[in-house]
């Protein structure tokens, strides 16, 4: 039976339609679809290594709508690391991250030691870009967190995003690699990855 306390919990926040689920599903399953299904709350689990032993990475994909403030608070208080996603094609979506960031600060207090990654997704849609890379970087600096642009569609920086996030964790050593052992899903994902090198 998986031990609850041993889990490392990552929570993904962001406005509706920025691609939170796409990023998560690209990472977890290696798949991508154009269709949009609003998320309520999904959690995926993956085995990773943590302090040289095995633990479960729990990625919680949250809703983009603000319908459930109580659920949001609960996710924050339970989360160990956070991914804040906006779409580079929508300045509004970056704006909408502010209250979430503030709430994380409020609930977590000292955020120095908490891994947070600001993510500009959809960077394959350069022609519709509203938020420059530099603006994202500036915001990250202000928030004292890391920054990355990604594309779930082209699988750009997706795995790197999660790896980087775990590297930010200083209180324990967490890594996606489990020595010598790869799950079927991971293998499959890598196979897929080989097929679409857009970088």
């Amino acid at each position: 039976m998986p031990e609850q306390s041993n889990d490392y919990r990552v929570v993904v926040f962001g406005a509706g339609g920025v691609g939170k689920s796409s990023l998560v599903l690209r990472f977890v399953k290696g798949t991508f679809r154009e269709s949009y299904i609003p998320t309520i709350e999904d959690t995926y689990r993956q085995v990773i290594s943590c302090d040289k032993s095995i633990c479960t990475l729990q990625i919680t994909d949250t809703t983009g709508s603000h319908q459930f403030p109580a659920m949001q608070r609960l996710s924050i208080s339970k989360g160990h690391a956070f991914i804040l996603v906006y779409s580079i094609t929508s300045r509004q979506s970056l704006e909408e991250l502010k209250p979430i960031y503030e709430q994380i600060c409020q609930i977590k207090g000292d955020i120095e030691n908490i891994p947070i990654m600001l993510v500009g997704n959809k960077n394959d849609e350069n022609q519709n870009r509203e938020v420059e890379n530099s603006e994202g970087e500036a915001m990250a600096k202000k928030w004292k967190c890391a920054f990355m642009e990604t594309s779930a569609k082209t699988n750009h920086n997706v795995k790197e995003l999660f790896q980087e996030l775990l590297n930010l964790e200083k209180r324990r050593t967490v890594s996606l690699q489990i020595d010598g052992k790869k799950s079927k899903q991971q293998k499959r994902k890598e196979k897929l990855k080989g097929k679409c090198v857009v970088m």
């Binding site: 399953k29 679809r33 269709s35």
Partner: peptide
């Protein structure tokens, strides 16, 4: 593996409907 998806569904939904939502969510090919 105890992952979960939250689906939105009619209370009266059939098992078939529920599975269709889950399949869609998981991008089950």
């Amino acid at each position: 593996d105890h992952s979960y998806v939250t689906i939105r569904s009619r209370l009266s939904a059939s098992v078939q409907d529920i599975l269709a939502s889950v399949t869609e969510k998981l991008q089950y090919s």
